[in-house]
């Protein structure tokens, strides 16, 4: 009889793992709480570093998933998981499934920028997040401020909800720096005359071509970089945003009026990740992501036998890393299921 793998979360990691596991010869059920596959990727327009359309990647995983004929349950949330005969019994929506292994790929949420109240998200209309900007790109590259005018000056604030003890997230979300650079260039593409400023603490361009993007943004697009953490934003009567920052390289405080302020929101474990973690009593990292069995040697297993993790439920990741991680998890699951037959 075919072994059955139950996957929770149909984002990039879950969908990719599903089709790979079917190829390996397992029975796969994928539960997704939304009505479509792809998770947060649906919110992005283009991806760094090549600015390829996110839709291309979505098509790829969707096609693979359909071709694999894995069983997909949409609009389905997990209410309970219990142990049963060495495997697990999962209460998914109205269904009850048994599985020999579970893969958790419940992903991340973006940081709720309202918590960082001093930046004014949800208070001032012209303060938006990187996700909101991405939506503007998807809706036909139209960037307007609240007065329906094209902004003349746009500021990007790095590390919103990342590297910040005061909101409880002391870690770096990895992808926001390069995303800011990508978005800054896209803004310049759409509004060539606009001034774009990035306010950063450190620019963490860790990927192979990320530094090139940074360079391109300076060279080709004239994006400006100011080293300093924005302390607060205030609203002028005309709706423009006044930000306060220290230009740490000049050693003096600086104030600047911008027409649109974009907050580069970081990664936090998604509500689903936290919930499943609690349900199964999984070990968590100090950052409240799901903790792998071994940080180097086994990053796909958990403290629970037969429960595996993949994607951004265990740490912030790029799309490329998420794919690699999902595939790594499938190998680990295969090893586990075939080992248990002997």
């Amino acid at each position: 009889m075919k072994k059955h793998v139950f996957i929770i979360g149909g984002g990039v990691a879950g969908a990719e793992a599903a089709s790979q596991l079917v190829k390996m010869g397992f029975d796969v059920t994928l539960a997704e709480k939304e009505t479509q596959i792809g998770g947060k990727l649906n919110q992005w327009d283009r991806l760094f570093p090549s600015k390829r359309k996110a839709a291309e990647v979505l098509d790829f995983i969707n096609k693979n998933l359909v071709d694999s004929k894995a069983r997909v349950l949409f609009n389905t949330e997990i209410s309970k998981i219990s142990k049963q005969n060495g495997g697990y019994k999962i209460y998914a929506g109205i269904e009850e499934c048994t599985a020999d292994a579970i893969l958790i790929s419940t992903g991340y949420d973006v940081f709720n920028a309202r918590i960082k109240e001093e930046y004014g998200y949800g208070i001032y209309e012209n303060v938006i997040t990187s996700v909101d900007l991405e939506e503007m790109f998807r809706n036909g590259n139209k960037i307007f401020n609240s007065n329906k005018e094209e902004p003349k000056r746009i500021g990007f604030v790095h590390c919103v909800g990342s590297r910040d003890e005061k909101v409880g997230n002391h870690y770096c979300s990895q992808v926001c720096c390069v995303t800011a650079v990508k978005q800054a260039m896209e803004v310049k593409e759409i509004l060539p005359r606009a001034e774009v400023y990035c306010f950063y603490m450190d620019l963490r361009m860790f990927g192979l071509q990320f530094e090139d993007l940074y360079r391109e943004s300076q060279e080709k697009w004239g994006v400006n970089f100011i080293r300093g953490r924005v302390s607060e934003a205030a609203e002028n009567i005309d709706g423009t945003i006044l930000i306060k920052v220290e230009d740490t390289l000049a050693g003096r405080p600086l104030k600047m009026k911008v027409d649109l302020l974009v907050l580069m929101v970081g990664f936090v474990p998604s509500a689903g990740t936290t919930e499943i973690g609690k349900m199964l009593n999984l070990d968590l990292t100090p950052e409240n992501f799901l903790k792998p069995a071994d940080e180097h040697l086994d990053t796909s297993s958990t403290n629970l036998k037969g429960v595996f993790i993949a994607g951004t439920c265990k740490s912030p990741k790029t799309i490329a890393d998420t794919f690699a991680d999902a595939r790594a998890a499938t190998l680990k699951i295969k090893e586990f299921l075939e080992g248990s037959e002997k």
Partner: peptide
């Protein structure tokens, strides 16, 4: 050295020499 302290500091905003 992120500078957020200086940015928000009332004194730093009022006098040139405080940071």
């Amino acid at each position: 050295s992120c500078g957020a302290c200086t940015a928000t500091c009332s004194t730093a905003n009022l006098t040139d020499f405080y940071n």
